[in-house]
Simulated assay, not measured.
Amino acid sequence: MSTWGKIFTAIRGGINEAAEAAADSQSMRILDQEIRDAEQSLRRARSDLAGIMASNKSVMRRLEENRAKETKDTDSARAAISAGRTDLAQGLAQRIANSRAEVQRDQEELDRLLPRQQQMLRTIQETESRIAQMKREVENVKANESLLRAQSAIAHNQSGINTRLGSAVESLERIKKRQEITAGRIEAGAELAALENGSDLDRQLREAGIGSSSQSADDVLAQLMAPTRSTEPVLLPAPAGNKDR
Results as ranks from 00 to 15, higher is better:
Ser129Gly: 08
Ser129His: 03
Ser129Asp: 12
Ile131Arg: 02
Gln133Gly: 12
Met134Lys: 14
Met134Asp: 14
Arg136Gln: 03
Arg136Val: 07
Arg136Pro: 00
Glu137Gln: 06
Asn140Ala: 10
Ala143Cys: 02
Asn144Met: 05
Asn144Arg: 15
Asn144Tyr: 01
Glu145Phe: 04
Ser146Phe: 08
Ser146Ile: 09
Leu147Val: 04
Arg149Trp: 03
Arg149Leu: 14
Arg149His: 07
Ala150Leu: 07
Ala150Lys: 14
Gln151Phe: 09
Gln151Tyr: 05
Ser152Cys: 01
Ser152Met: 07
Ile154Thr: 15
His156Leu: 12
His156Lys: 15
Gln158Met: 08
Gln158Trp: 04
Gln158Lys: 06
Ser159Phe: 12
Ser167Pro: 00
Ser167Ile: 00
Ala168Lys: 07
Ala168Tyr: 05
Val169Glu: 11
Glu170Gln: 12
Glu173Asn: 13
Glu173Lys: 13
Arg174Leu: 10
Lys176Met: 00
Lys176Ile: 10
Lys177Asp: 12
Arg178Tyr: 12
Arg178Glu: 13
Arg178Leu: 05
Arg178His: 13
Gln179Tyr: 07
Glu180Val: 07
Ile181Met: 12
Thr182Tyr: 08
Gly184Tyr: 04
Gly184Leu: 03
Glu187Trp: 05
Glu187Lys: 15
Glu187Ile: 04
Gly189Asp: 15
Ala190Thr: 05
Ala190Asn: 04
Glu191Gln: 06
Glu191Asp: 15
Leu192His: 08
Leu192Lys: 14
Leu192Val: 13
Ala193Gly: 06
Ala193His: 10
Ala193Trp: 01
Ala194Met: 14
Ala194Pro: 01
Leu195Trp: 07
Glu196Lys: 13
Asn197Asp: 15
Gly198Pro: 00
Gly198Ala: 08
Gly198Val: 03
Asp200Trp: 05
Leu201Gln: 13
Asp202Gln: 12
Asp202Asn: 09
Asp202Ile: 09
Asp202Leu: 12
Arg203His: 10
Arg203Ile: 09
Leu205Phe: 10
Arg206Met: 08
Gly209Lys: 01
Ser213Glu: 10
Gln215Gly: 04
Ser216Arg: 01
Asp218Pro: 00
Asp219His: 10
Asp219Gln: 14
Asp219Phe: 03
Val220Ile: 15
Gln223Ser: 15
Gln223Cys: 04
Gln223Val: 13
Met225Gln: 12
Met225Trp: 00
Ala226Phe: 05
Ala226Ser: 14
Pro227Ala: 07
Thr228Asp: 06
Thr228Gln: 08
Ser230Arg: 14
Ser230Ala: 04
Ser230Tyr: 07
Ser230Phe: 06
Glu232Ile: 05
Glu232Val: 02
Pro233Trp: 01
Pro233Val: 03
Leu235Ser: 08
Pro237Ser: 11
Ala238Thr: 09
Ala238Tyr: 05
Pro239Trp: 04
Pro239Glu: 10
Ala240Thr: 13
Gly241Leu: 11
Asp244Cys: 01
Asp244Glu: 08
